[in-house]
């Protein structure tokens, strides 16, 4: 059974918000991913989002696109991503892991096999950017058999009457995309976010986490005050790669990203 609902229940009862980092599996190296996940948990991550590299990541901005390219240069496949989750679970049985990616690698593996392998690996949830409710039926049927949550995106352009269609297919949590744009975009409008979260809350009791455009403690607290959690991806990857491009070691790059996540954690906890 998915660890997401117990995780959010515990956060809610202690009055805390979820901090959810996103990294691309196999970026910058295959060996760095699992240790980085453990360090992110130690720095305060409640849920982990692990990106499945894809050749055509259509919703990603340049920072995460390059992460996908680096991971593909390391030949990271969906099978290997699941193997990383297995490795992570050897030391951590409690932190929920959500894998996030695009439909085609899952299609290629086959829905039934994918669901079975996710369950065996210890995956808790799935976000597939290009599988809206209209296309998700057959995959959802397989995920439900193994009690893996399917997490849907709701965006600023989602009409109010469509929100119920999405939440009816969703479990685990709802991912609200805070900006019209790709990941890492920089024009977050928190009053607009608040208005949309109210619309979503009218349709579902599921926790709502907000992502796209959250890059530091300040932007995280501004939306964290209204949501059940925040997702931060591009900022972590950018921090890591900028450090490495200016000559720092992989370890220092990872440390800087982990430190940023820690500052977001304490910013949200102290707001």
């Amino acid at each position: 059974m998915s660890r997401l609902t117990p995780c959010f229940d515990a956060l809610r009862s202690s009055g805390r918000k979820a901090v959810i980092p996103y990294i691309v599996a196999g970026d910058p190296t295959v060996a760095s991913t699992v240790p980085m996940l453990h360090r992110l948990v130690a720095a305060g991550a409640d849920v982990l989002e692990l990106g499945v590299p894809f050749s055509d990541p259509m919703s990603e901005g340049p920072v995460i696109q390059r992460g996908h390219e680096r991971a593909l240069a390391n030949s990271v496949s969906l099978t290997q991503v699941l193997a990383m989750v297995v490795e992570f679970r050897q030391q951590d049985q409690t932190t929920p892991v959500v894998i996030m990616g695009y439909a085609n690698p899952v299609e290629r593996m086959g829905y039934a096999q994918f669901a079975a392998e996710c369950a065996a690996a210890g995956v808790d949830g799935l976000i597939t950017v290009d599988l809206p409710p209209e296309e998700v039926g057959p995959l959802n049927a397989e995920l439900q058999k193994v009690e893996i949550d399917n997490i849907f995106l709701i965006s600023p352009t989602t009409p109010a009457q469509r929100i119920g269609t999405i939440t009816a297919n969703a479990s685990g949590f709802i991912y609200y995309v805070a900006v019209k744009g790709v990941t890492g975009a920089g024009h977050l409008d928190s009053s607009d976010v608040g208005m949309h979260l109210d619309l979503i809350r009218a349709e579902t009791a599921l926790p709502i986490c907000v992502g796209f455009g959250i890059k530091d403690a300040e932007s995280a607290t501004s939306v964290g005050a209204m949501a059940d959690g925040v997702v931060v991806g591009s900022a972590l990857i950018d921090t890591m790669t900028v450090a490495m491009e200016s000559g720092s070691s992989l370890d220092v790059g990872v440390e800087k990203a982990v430190t940023l996540l820690g500052s977001i954690r304490s910013g949200i906890d102290n707001m």
Binding site: D130, E134, S155, P156, T157, P159, V177, G181
Partner: peptide
């Protein structure tokens, strides 16, 4: 009505584009 040609076609896009 769902945009399918047999098993092909459909609308596999990010949510932001669905209403457009």
């Amino acid at each position: 009505p769902d945009g399918r040609f047999g098993p092909y076609g459909g609308k596999f896009v990010a949510e932001t584009l669905m209403s457009a």
